[in-house]
Amino acid sequence: MDLHETHRPEPATTARPTADPTTGAAVTATRRTAAVTTAVPPPSRPPRHVRVVPVLTAAWWSVSELVALTVTLLGGTLPVGDASPDAVGTLLHDVPGSTLSLLVVLLALVGATLAVGMARARRSAVPAPARRAATVAAAVTVAGAVTLTDASILARLGYLPLLVVRAPFDEKYREAFAGYVAPGVLVQYLALGGAVLLAWATVLFRRRARGACAVCGRAVDHPEPAWRTPARAAVWGRRWALVAAVIPALYAATRLAWVAGYPFGMQPDDYDAMVADGMLPAAFGLAAFALVGSVLTLGLFQRWGEVFPRWMVGLAGRRVPVMLAVVPATLVAVAVVPASITLLAIGPDQLRAEAAESWGALAPMLLWPLWGPALGAATYAYHLRRRPACRTCGLG
């Protein structure tokens, strides 16, 4: 029946209508519902990642558990801890590889169990205690996986553009690619990838378990908190974006000083050795990568981060896709987390010793524990500001 037919006025009568508060409230509520219904687009099928991520997470952790268990039962040792020359920067680099292999098996078992359980959870509401327990268990598992990683992930990400440019012309740079697929490095990739997937699957699980939209997290009966509104997100997002832009800019400044011939914060002998080893091009590559990242971070609150500027031929005036900014920024923010853990693995005594020798190289790195969260917060604020009405649930 058409909505207008439902509220079609009755024929006029001579009797004066009396006010009924109950009926009036019902009509008002009905009108509000009709207004909401016409104000949002019709719901559509959830995007593919809502269905794929939980299944992929369960498969990722299950296969990891199977491989780790097989290696351990056959008497082998995983390339972790002191069993891997590529794990010297991890928080667990001094743990015997045989012992840490057993812990990895246990960690993978917990992760696989959680991932399978969350993927199989029904769409009906899950009790709050069960949601909290699953979230805590997932957080502990993610933290355990991240402790298997170190700063080499961020370093390889920074060196990658330089290697791609120089590799066709220099055999030394082509050989450097072997370090990207070393056994200990592959374990770190798998651990960090599993951590990201499990965190993502947990977010989707919590949304589905409390009856919210799995895509945007909005719910009809739970209004968005004030800090997540676009206006508020613009305020705190700008602050975090400035912090996240300054930190890599400081890092780039020290490296550019070295390239310019000034041994800023380094002993002269160490600087001469770096020049003799041909490390200045690498320093320039890292500085350029950091500067580009710093400028792009400013776009998380600038106008040109939402609309392509006029000098970009073919794209000028078009709106920047939200994911074009969110995905790379999130990738860097995630890669910074293992780099921060490396600082903990070094320890205060060694940090003081290295600072005395080369404080210019170390000082910008001390800000990395702040860089990752700041960039993550700025990216999330950008997402909150620019996300449109949800195509799945229609809320917005």
Rank of each mutant, 00 (worst) to 15 (best):
D150A: 14
C390Y: 05
R123F: 02
W258S: 10
H93E: 09
D94M: 03
V95P: 05
G75W: 06
G314P: 09
P223R: 00
T149G: 01
L351R: 03
S98Y: 11
V320M: 03
A119R: 11
A130D: 12
L351Y: 05
W60G: 03
A244M: 06
Y380T: 02
D269S: 15
A241E: 00
A233R: 08
L103W: 12
L103N: 09
S358D: 14
R120E: 10
V104H: 09
A252P: 00
A273E: 15
A226T: 15
R208M: 00
M118K: 12
R218I: 12
A234I: 07
A201W: 06
D277P: 06
R32V: 06
A178N: 12
A191F: 03
R120C: 09
W61M: 07
A316W: 11
R385F: 11
V220K: 13
S84D: 00
M323P: 01
R255H: 07
V50A: 10
L73P: 02
T22H: 13
E5P: 00
A288Q: 08
V40P: 02
V220I: 14
V27D: 02
Y180K: 02
A335C: 10
A143C: 02
A34W: 09
E65G: 13
L107N: 00
W311V: 07
A356V: 06
L315W: 03
L375H: 03
G76P: 02
A209Q: 07
A212D: 04
T147F: 11
D86Y: 09
M274H: 05
L250N: 04
P85K: 08
V275R: 06
L370T: 06
D272V: 09
T14P: 01
R387V: 06
V95N: 09
R239W: 12
Y251V: 03
W61S: 01
P161A: 03
P268A: 15
G285A: 14
A355N: 15
R310Q: 11
A29F: 06
E171S: 08
E65V: 11
L198V: 03
V275W: 00
G89E: 04
V36L: 15
E5T: 04
P21A: 12
T297A: 11
V246G: 00
T37I: 13
C216F: 12
R45F: 13
C393A: 03
P263L: 08
W304P: 10
L92D: 01
R206V: 05
D272Q: 15
E357G: 04
V275G: 00
P161D: 01
V146I: 00
P43F: 11
V215H: 15
V71L: 08
G111S: 08
A244Y: 06
V185I: 13
F301M: 00
M323L: 15
A29N: 13
A155H: 14
V126H: 06
T38M: 10
C213W: 12
A155N: 12
D94G: 07
V105D: 01
D269G: 10
A139C: 12
G360K: 13
W258C: 08
T330P: 02
M118N: 06
P9F: 13
Y189T: 04
F205V: 05
L286F: 04
G184M: 08
P54S: 07
P168V: 13
W61R: 02
L375M: 04
L250I: 12
L296Q: 04
A282Y: 13
T57G: 12
A287G: 09
F177T: 03
V67Q: 02
V203Q: 04
F308Y: 14
L186Y: 05
L204V: 10
